[in-house]
Computed example of a mutant assay.
Amino acid sequence: MTSTLWKAAGLVLLAAAAGLWVGVRGPGAGPAPAAAATPYGPDYFPNVALTTQDGKTVRFYDDLLKGKAVAINLFYTSCQDVCPLETANLVQVQKLLGERMGKDIFFYSIAIDPWDTPKENKAYAQKFGVGPGWLFLSGKEADIQLLARKLGLSRASDAVSKDGHSASLMVGDVANGMWMRNSATDNPLFLSTTIGNFLGWKSAKPDASYAEARPLNIGKGEFLFQSRCSACHTIGGGDRVGPDLLGVTERRDHAWLARFVLEPEKVLAEGDPIATDLFRKYKQVRMPNVELGSDDVVAVLSYIQARSRSPEAGTGKDAVAGNAAARGR
């Protein structure tokens, strides 16, 4: 289905959209331009009609962008690859942003599949436990393609990719015409901190001293778990989108577990009873293929096993959304 969602001719990124990244503020960049001076206002963004997951009709610029801080990504409900990982990861970001969601910043996920209805989008959002301040939007296919180009969320290569889009997140300070691109699957703590810094939020906590920083000692398995698995799983912190993995290496056959991590879509498609039971139990959210190699899988399973046997196992410390250091930040 995804190959028909976007025609290659419609996916070439406009030069104007590329300019969205040029306007990012940096240290010493001076004050942000006045809203009236920004080229990324009502004359740039189309004010097309979209429909929320609750069936409400909204206008893209007037209702969703004007005067707001926003974070926008693309998705579709039948996606079996990166979309579930994006959504699960952004749920953790949403939790870290706390009360700012729906007040200081708004999340928008735009469906690129014209068959995704508000009803399907709402069911998808509920599967992942999405909270207030986050809209899942659908609209006419031509309008969605136009928005993707204007937002800098479409590329010529997307048409032939597995998902039909890239796992990008555009963060915008619309009032000041400032936009920033991030990976929607980046570490949640890093993403939430980056968003706050970009928007100029002041933390109530004093900044820690670099002198207090401890040396990083992160093995391959921990790095891969935190960057590929922690959006959906914990080790002793309880279920998220997927099951808590505490002790999973003791409960499951090692060969089965390794293959399921390596190619989950094939195991489920074969009707494997364990995979099918997990699919049903966890709201029919498919485990995405996070593109690990055989050696990577060994490292991840070894980390889960060691973590499960550690004194901290079951204390809930893994319930914290991610480890910024695990992404090298």
Rank of each mutant, 00 (worst) to 15 (best):
Y76Q: 06
K66P: 01
L64Y: 05
T57Q: 15
F75V: 02
K68V: 03
T51K: 12
L50M: 13
I72W: 02
R59K: 15
C79A: 01
L74A: 01
L50T: 07
R59D: 08
I72H: 01
G67L: 04
V70R: 06
K68C: 03
T52I: 12
D62G: 07
D54E: 14
I72T: 02
A69D: 10
G55W: 08
D54S: 14
L65E: 05
S78F: 01
K56N: 10
T57Y: 02
K66H: 12
N73D: 12
A71C: 05
F75S: 01
T51W: 05
T57G: 04
C79N: 00
V70T: 14
T57L: 14
T57K: 15
A71M: 10
K68A: 07
T52N: 11
L64P: 03
V70I: 15
T51P: 00
Q80I: 01
D62M: 06
C79M: 01
D54I: 05
D63S: 14
C79Y: 00
V70H: 07
Y76E: 03
T52Q: 11
D62A: 15
V58L: 15
K68H: 09
Q53N: 11
V58A: 13
F75I: 04
C79H: 01
F60L: 11
F75Q: 01
Y61G: 07
F60T: 09
Y76D: 05
S78K: 13
A69E: 12
G67P: 04
K56C: 08
A69M: 10
V70N: 03
G67Y: 05
A69W: 05
K68Y: 05
A71P: 02
L65P: 06
S78D: 02
R59I: 09
T52F: 06
T52P: 03
R59C: 09
Y76P: 08
A71E: 04
K56P: 01
K66V: 05
C79R: 00
T57E: 15
L74P: 00
A71H: 02
K56R: 15
K66L: 12
Q80S: 05
L50K: 12
R59V: 08
D62S: 14
G55N: 11
C79Q: 00
V58Q: 11
F60Y: 15
F75L: 13
Q80K: 08
T51Y: 04
A69F: 10
G55T: 08
T51C: 09
D63F: 06
F60E: 12
A71G: 08
A69Y: 07
A69P: 04
T52H: 08
L65H: 09
Y61E: 04
R59S: 14
L65W: 10
V58Y: 07
Y61R: 09
L50S: 08
D62N: 13
L74G: 00
D54Y: 13
Q80E: 03
